[in-house]
Design a protein around this nucleic acid. Structure first.
Lengths: 394, 394
DNA sequence: CTGTTAGCGCATTCAT
DNA sequence: ATGAATGCGCTAACAG
């Protein structure tokens, strides 16, 4: 009878899979348990458990620790997670919900950071739901996993434009079960939950400041807001940074250079539309000589439209994007863009969640804000160096 | 004392999270167990277990089944996975290894199919390793998860150009533990393992046939092979389809129109290089009027290079890509491409794996080959309709 | 500092 | 067709 394999007709179906490997790694019939390790090391099972779990509450002598560890290694002992789980009430797995589709860099980059961190911490990552239109449904899945004991906590990667009420009701569902939670990219401030964001105000600030450094004064800003009250923190932050940089340079924030896109999926077409709007301005002032867009996809649309309108970049129009999307460096001209530390955000989110799960976190909700930096390429005609370094360090 | 939450200093740190939700969903101190359901339904625990697990081996009367089900629903009974796991030797989770980076469509599209299917089958998905350069390392992680009892089986999404020996040794590691396995995108044929692929021969065939239908006879093919012996099945298949279509049309396969890229990461630059090679051909024959490339990224490079060389697409050069990458429809001209049924491949892989885990699969290894279809856009100048439909149905 | 005892919640024999 | 007993492998509270 083979381990963890209820049906043995595998043996009949794939005889090749059972051929010659048995002598190289002698498979005992029985699973190695903590009992075996205890016997081998000449101690008790609870001592083994304490050593394996690095339990500091009960002091184990160094020599005993080594005895147990070497015995475990000798026997190839791998603790059964289900058994640990049933008595420790932990699954050593965390769940992930992303409001972004599975191919979005807003998911994949943080994901890398999470996996890297969790692997070294002996946690695994279970996908709950990706790119769902209905956050409440996603939350329900996570709740089920939590109640089953599949996951110990949850990271949620939010969209900046997620409907406020939907987020609130989804979070309530999770709070009700007292599930450890960390939010990445918070759209709405939740005072009682750990959050990891990047410094969007600074993003808008360094982007705009760079354009000013390149000699521009007529700088447009393209973003999106749901409505006057309910705008996403991320985009509003970038807007405020844009305003701040202009004001510092003594430029009056030009209201008719600010384009508010309708609230829908980002698309290159939105960028084209925005540029057309800016070009056909009512003539009260010059057309902008530079644009900062809330992301690179929209910037791509601006580039397309500008090329079609016969504008040469960056001479006729300078442009800065946001997010440093893959592919932005391949554009003509290669796009200057504000990079978010997405991988690091994922790692920090995982770290915070682990602390919450294990109760080792601070007594107050943690609000992490990580710095962005500017990736300078060709789309603004910048040729300097010093400025670059200064911005990147900040 | 709250459920599944060892530390209660949460209560101290986030008092808001414990405020008013308690009356809406009365949380009993104790977890609802099968014992409670048995008592409520007036039956025994084993009956509850049999009903919940739809165990057909032991016959339960319809009326008892209903009694149990309604009692379970009334109490909000959610079986503890760890407990089920410890006695059933199943985790109801499957693992995923992808040789592709987390943002690659070769991972994300199948992933959608898997998650959708697994959710309805009450399995969860645990990420083992994504985009690792070292498959043996990935396999070691999966083995650990399997031995811990975190996962019941594994789906591996392979790269077409993964080194043969590395794949073999990684698979040996997995086979040795007798782990249920399904391969997506097999680079090397493994006679004893279930595999899901798309019909790459047909992909090359319909792409080339389409170009012939557009009136082209001088058709180049850009692909990549590691060496003469060890070439990936996927790319070799596309090559064979290309040859087949040419031969059917009475065109002699032109050896100097076949470009073999060096074995490295795909890049637009490779596409540019390939076109330059084709353009500077030794003059023994005309330059090709059409190109089929093994994927859209390389096609993008060809488009760039063609534009720089002053060629107008599709008049001067027609082009068909492969994979129908996101963004290919946004190119100028919008790229005609062979689409793989990646999402469906993921779903089928999950289905096969579940069968293997539960021992309900066929007695022989399953080799699924799913059809590709051509997505016709502007890059070949095609204006017909009938051909499109025909290809898509095949 | 270490060993003994007692569950955890479920699936799975076997009896009935 | 159903119920009672047994064990899965581990952790945690205790006693020594």
């Amino acid at each position: 009878m083979t381990l963890c394999n209820g049906k043995e007709n595998h043996k009949k179906t794939h005889p090749e899979r059972f051929g010659g490997g048995d002598d190289s790694r002698p498979k005992s019939k029985r699973r190695i348990t903590s009992f075996d390790v205890a016997k081998e090391a000449g101690v008790s099972r609870s001592t083994v458990s304490a050593v394996i779990n690095k339990n500091t509450k009960v002091g184990i002598s160094e020599s005993t620790t080594q005895k147990v560890l070497s015995a475990a290694a000798r026997l190839g002992y791998i603790p059964k997670l289900a058994a640990r789980s049933i008595s420790s009430h932990r699954s050593y797995a965390i769940g992930l919900i992303s409001c972004w589709q599975s191919n979005s860099y807003m998911l994949t980059r943080p994901l890398r950071g999470m996996m890297q961190y969790l692997r070294q911490e002996e946690y695994s990552l279970t996908l709950c739901d990706l790119g769902s239109a209905d956050m409440t449904k996603s939350a329900a899945i996570a709740v089920k996993y939590f109640l089953e004991g599949r996951i110990d906590g949850l990271i949620i990667i939010l969209r900046t434009n997620a409907p406020e009420e939907e987020v609130a009701s989804a979070l309530d569902l999770l709070r009700r079960e007292n599930m450890p939670l960390v939010l990445v990219n918070t759209a709405v401030e939740e005072p009682d939950i750990d959050e990891v964001n990047c410094d969007n105000l600074h993003a808008g600030y360094i982007a705009t400041k760079h354009l000013i450094s390149c000699g521009h004064r007529d700088i447009a800003f393209i973003y999106r807001r749901q409505n006057a009250e309910n705008c996403s923190l991320a985009e509003e932050g970038r807007y405020r940074g844009y305003i701040k940089a202009l004001e510092e340079a003594g430029i009056e924030p030009p209201e008719d250079y600010v384009v508010r896109l309708p609230d829908q999926e980002f698309d290159v077409k939105q960028g084209s539309d925005a540029l057309h709007y800016l070009m056909n301005n009512d003539g009260a002032r010059r057309r902008p000589s530079a644009v900062y867009t809330l992301n690179d996809t929209v910037a791509l649309g601006v580039i397309y439209a500008a090329a079609k309108a016969g504008l040469h970049l960056p001479e006729d129009l300078a442009i800065v994007g946001n997010d440093d999307m893959e592919g932005s460096r391949l554009l003509c001209p290669a796009l200057t863009s504000v990079a978010q530390p997405l991988q690091q955000m994922g790692e920090e989110a995982a770290r915070l969640l682990k602390q919450r799960i294990e109760g080792t976190g601070p007594d107050h909700p943690v609000k992490l804000t990580l710095p962005c930096h500017l990736v300078i390429r060709e789309s603004c005609g910048w040729s300097g160096q010093a400025e670059v370094e200064r911005e990147e360090q900040s």
